[in-house]
Design a protein around this nucleic acid. Structure first.
Length: 192
DNA sequence: AGAACGATAACCT
DNA sequence: GGTTATCGTTCTT
């Protein structure tokens, strides 16, 4: 691995249009260090979705700021973690271009590259292939909860995104998953 | 006060 | 492959 591919992506990476950032996060590495660094987990980001602002009927930010979504309006490069279905957490990276007031990229799936045993244990021993192939599966595998709301993804802390050049794999693009509004916007990206 | 929204596992067939 | 149970956040009435 080249030396700087393990460095966190800089804040400027997230200071671009949310849809471009969603596309460019594919192939990067999501890193989770818990329990004082004793639990080290990492995985390649293989599916993302962009959620923008008032122009996006499926976005949490479509009707302005609330207690839950305030991170989407805050500093880019930070984590927006939300609770859904009364049961699950989902992880987003705050990202938006200069002309927008809110935006975030939902990380929908990763392929484990380190700490696979820990993630499998966090998921009641489920098979490696299914350990983190969904937005709430990956937060369960990496123990990502509301405690990490607002965490800085650009610093080597408990949770960050690293990666120099992303892997060369085919990118598929389509409508976002699990929503009913905004299905005309093809803002879901995944690695084949 | 009431209703819309949404990811996963468990179960069924 | 389809159905079902789970409930906090947010908007509408």
């Amino acid at each position: 691995m080249p030396p700087d591919s393990a460095r966190p992506l800089p804040r400027a990476f997230y200071s671009r249009d949310t849809v471009a950032v969603a596309r460019d996060l594919l192939g990067r590495t999501l890193v989770r260090r818990a329990h004082g660094g004793r639990a080290a987990m990492a995985g390649t980001i293989v599916e993302t979705e962009a959620y923008r602002s008032s122009d996006d009927p499926a976005s949490h930010a479509r009707n302005g700021m609330t207690q839950r979504n305030r991170a989407m309006f805050g500093e880019v490069g930070r984590a927006y973690v939300y609770f859904t279905y009364g049961m699950h957490h989902c992880l987003n990276a705050v990202a938006r271009g200069p002309s927008r007031d809110a935006g975030a990229v939902l990380i929908r799936a990763i392929e484990p590259t380190a700490g696979g045993c820990i993630m499998s244990r966090n998921r009641r021993g489920c098979a490696a292939r299914d350990v983190a192939n969904g937005p709430a599966k990956l937060t369960q595998a990496m123990r990502i909860t509301g405690d990490l709301y607002g965490a800085d993804l650009t610093a080597r802390g408990e949770l960050y995104v690293a990666g120099g050049a992303p892997a060369r794999r085919r990118v598929a693009r389509g409508p976002r998953v699990g929503i009913r509004r905004g299905l005309d916007l093809e803002w879901n990206f995944r690695l084949a």
